Amino acid sequence: MSGLFKTYRVLALVVGTLLLVGCIGSVLKYLLPEGGTLQTLGEDMWPVWVGHGWIYMIYVVVAFVLTQRAGWALPRFLLMMVAGLIPGLIFWVEHRVATQLRAEHPELAQA
């Protein structure tokens, strides 16, 4: 895999995981009784959101560069961006991007 493609895949998985963990933390924080242990755990998970935000910004830059090198249209890039904001979607999009990149541009996805 090229360094850019490998970086994209790792960032996508990290962003997706942080998003899921952050959403679980929000559920714990806002939907459980005030002062409980799990509710407090949800409140203490704010660093997950900070990490997701910073890593998401890097992910967007890497996704943009990857789409430019592959010569893909803007809608594909926008789908990649939105995928980092909807829990679970990024895993499907990452799989689709990897499959399409290997088929259309094997030089970008080669080992």
Rank of each mutant, 00 (worst) to 15 (best):
L101R: 00
V62I: 05
S2Y: 04
G51D: 00
E43W: 11
V15T: 13
L85E: 12
H52G: 07
S26M: 09
A83I: 07
F5K: 04
L41T: 09
P75I: 14
E43N: 15
W54C: 05
L41F: 08
T17K: 04
L79T: 09
M80G: 09
A98K: 13
Q100G: 03
F5C: 03
T99N: 11
E43L: 10
V27T: 13
Q68C: 04
M1P: 04
V27N: 11
L78S: 02
Y8R: 03
L41C: 01
T67E: 10
Q39H: 01
Q68D: 04
G16E: 08
M80H: 10
G84Y: 03
S2I: 07
W46R: 11
W92F: 14
E43I: 05
M57K: 05
H52M: 05
R96Y: 06
V15R: 06
G84A: 04
L31W: 01
P47Y: 00
I58R: 05
G51F: 05
L38I: 08
V15Q: 10
M45H: 06
V82F: 12
W49L: 09
M1Y: 13
E104K: 09
L4W: 03
V15G: 06
L89P: 08
G25T: 07
S2V: 07
C23Y: 07
T17C: 11
H52D: 04
L18P: 05
F64L: 12
A12R: 01
K6F: 11
V82Y: 07
A98D: 13
G35D: 04
M1C: 05
L78N: 05
L74S: 05
L85R: 09
V48T: 15
L66Q: 00
L89M: 15
W54H: 06
L31Y: 03
T37F: 15
K6W: 14
I90L: 06
L28Q: 13
Q68N: 08
V61S: 05
L20D: 00
R102E: 14
L4T: 12
P106L: 10
A73S: 01
L38E: 08
L101Y: 00
G35S: 08
W46E: 11
V62K: 00
M57Q: 07
W46A: 12
L85K: 14
F77V: 00
T7I: 13
G71A: 04
I58F: 11
G25R: 06
L89D: 06
K29Q: 12
M45Y: 04
L18T: 10
G71M: 01
G88S: 14
P33H: 02
L89Y: 05
V48P: 08
E104R: 03
